[in-house]
């Protein structure tokens, strides 16, 4: 009951979904759509676990006065303010309910979006520091990596003069020949790895996720 039933469920639903792929009939499409909905709905309910986990970890920090506990109050405040605004059916801010709530929208636009966009833009710096550190001709492989990256980065550099069109052509070649081959091989390999892993789950060989007893 605790272990056999879940394994049986994995097996049955796994094969059901494999077979479903080969059946074009509308009943099979209906089953597919319905099961997709299931997964989504389970995910929504599971979010409660996530929020509980976030709250508990933050609250523990505050309660036990762990280092940086003060910031955890900010997290909790942000979380609960957002929840409050989103569920504000009493319209404290004289605006619409739910996801149209004024505070809810503005918190998202002026807190989440700027910080996320800035986090993303840090990549400009990190890509530079990673290039500096890693692109050294230590070995043949590192040199290949370095040369390919340099050619592509130089492709539009007008200071190269007559070399520039050659760089341009060379970089198009690099992207369309070796890069294509590398990607294709990785995709085929990954495809086989995925199918193998999924089959192992269905056959019950990989069962770490189910826990013990």
């Amino acid at each position: 009951m605790k272990r056999q039933l879940p394994l049986a469920m994995v097996f049955i639903f796994g094969f059901l979904m494999i077979i479903q792929y080969f059946i074009p009939h509308e009943y099979s499409e209906w089953v597919n759509a319905f099961l997709m909905d299931w997964m989504m709905i389970i995910g929504v309910f599971a979010l409660a676990l996530g929020l509980w986990s976030l709250t508990r970890v933050s609250w523990d920090k505050v309660r036990q006065k762990k280092p940086n506990w003060g910031y955890s109050i900010v997290t909790l405040a942000g979380l609960f303010l957002m929840m409050f605004f989103g569920f504000d059916y009493f319209r404290h801010f004289s605006t619409a309910v739910g996801s149209d709530n004024y505070m809810y929208i503005h918190f998202y636009r002026h807190i989440v979006i700027p910080i996320q966009a800035t986090m993303f833009s840090l990549l400009a710096f990190f890509i530079a520091s990673a290039a500096y550190r890693a692109f050294r001709a230590r070995s043949l492989l590192a040199t290949l990596l370095l040369v390919a990256a340099l050619v592509i980065m130089l492709r539009f550099n007008p200071f190269l003069g007559p070399l520039q069109p050659i760089m341009e052509e060379f970089s198009v070649w690099l992207l369309n020949v070796p890069n294509l081959a590398a990607k294709r091989a990785i995709v085929i390999g990954v495809g086989l790895g995925m199918v193998a892993t999924a089959l192992k789950v269905i056959l019950g060989i990989e069962r770490a996720y189910l826990g013990k007893d």
Partner: peptide, 25 residues
């Protein structure tokens, strides 16, 4: 809670097998 997890994993794996075989391989 293992039941919904098992269901989720079953569906996800079953979906992946033919679809990844097709799309990737």
């Amino acid at each position: 809670s293992r039941w919904p997890i098992a269901l989720y994993m079953g569906i996800a794996s079953g979906m992946a097998v033919p679809r990844e075989m097709h799309a990737r391989v």
